[in-house]
Write a protein that binds this DNA or RNA. Structure first.
Length: 283
DNA sequence: ACCAGCTCCTGCTTGC
DNA sequence: TGCAAGCAGGAGCTGG
């Protein structure tokens, strides 16, 4: 579900409630998500101050004052929802826990942040901040697509000799980190490149054009607060609205939005996942 | 080394 | 209306 723009939107939404603030208490309501929670997670978080709320790829990074960092991944259906501090007189009106509310952060001052994840593909781990970059979930990630390390030369080099479809190459988090099914489809359409084409067989100048296409797609999506299809919500519970700006994703059978193109958007399946593209203007 | 397919889990939509 | 199949934004693992 959440790709880079959604995770970045959640991160920004969590900042007022969490950044620089103390975690009073953490409720852990089940033993695991995708993997078991780290040992004594609740105790290790309780009383800590969150010095910084960061993001790497699709991972939220909560840096604590105790030398540890909490890594949070939302998987396909994860949410981090903020409840403002309830008034004491109305404390009984706090919404009852949903059965998929797996972890609840009770912040000093009364705000609550709830991690909810029906499909439980999400994950949390708590690790020494000094060793964060070496963590197995983060160590092999490629460059951030909105950062300086991601540029035209990097992508050309990463694609060289690759026989996999460019769609699969862009989903490979080692090549570029943070893209998922939606934004790969959208960026390839913006760049006029067929998702079916082998990554190593695209002319260099066209690979280079993919870099600004990816950046613009992600920038626009972040500006719109991400894409809400079914599960994703911002930290305040509101929906993103970039789904209204999709050019191809989920739009099979509709006219291609490219200026002057008379093609029709098609859905095909690549390595078991839906790909949306215009066969007329994506070559 | 590379790459396609399977898998984890729940819930919503679609078709008979 | 009921029920089963199909599908979903991620990504690690297996095996060819």
């Amino acid at each position: 579900m959440p790709e880079l723009p959604e995770v970045e939107t959640v991160r920004r939404g969590l900042e007022p409630a969490m950044a620089g603030r103390i975690v009073d208490r953490v409720e852990v309501r089940r033993p695991d998500l995708r993997w078991p929670f780290p040992p004594r997670m609740a105790e290790r978080l309780s009383g800590a101050r969150i010095d910084h709320l960061g993001r790497r790829s699709k991972y939220l990074l909560l840096t604590l004052d105790r030398g540890e960092t909490l890594i949070v991944h939302l998987g396909m259906s994860g949410r981090m929802l903020v409840d403002a501090a309830p008034l004491a007189a109305h404390a009984h009106e706090i919404a009852p826990a949903d059965r998929h509310d797996h972890v609840v952060f009770h912040m000093a001052g009364g705000a609550r942040v709830t991690f909810n994840d029906p499909r439980r593909f999400g994950a949390m781990d708590l690790v020494a901040t000094a060793a964060l970059d070496a963590h197995w979930l983060l160590a092999r990630l490629g460059p951030e697509p909105l950062g300086n390390a991601f540029d035209e030369d990097h992508l050309v080099a990463a694609f060289r000799g690759r026989r996999m479809p460019v769609k699969a190459a862009l989903l490979d988090q080692r090549i570029v980190a943070g893209l998922g099914n939606i934004y790969v489809c959208e960026a390839l359409h913006r760049a006029g490149i067929s998702p079916l084409r082998k990554a190593g067989r695209i002319a260099a100048h066209r690979v280079r054009a993919l870099v600004p296409a990816i950046r613009a797609t992600l920038d626009d999506a972040i500006r719109a607060g991400g894409s809400s299809l079914r599960d994703y919500r911002r930290a305040d519970g509101a929906m993103g609205y970039f789904q209204h700006d999709f050019r191809v994703y989920g739009r099979a059978g509709r006219p291609c939005p490219t200026q002057g193109c008379t093609g029709t958007v098609r859905r095909v399946v690549q390595s078991g996942r839906s790909t949306f593209h215009c066969p007329a203007c994506q070559r």
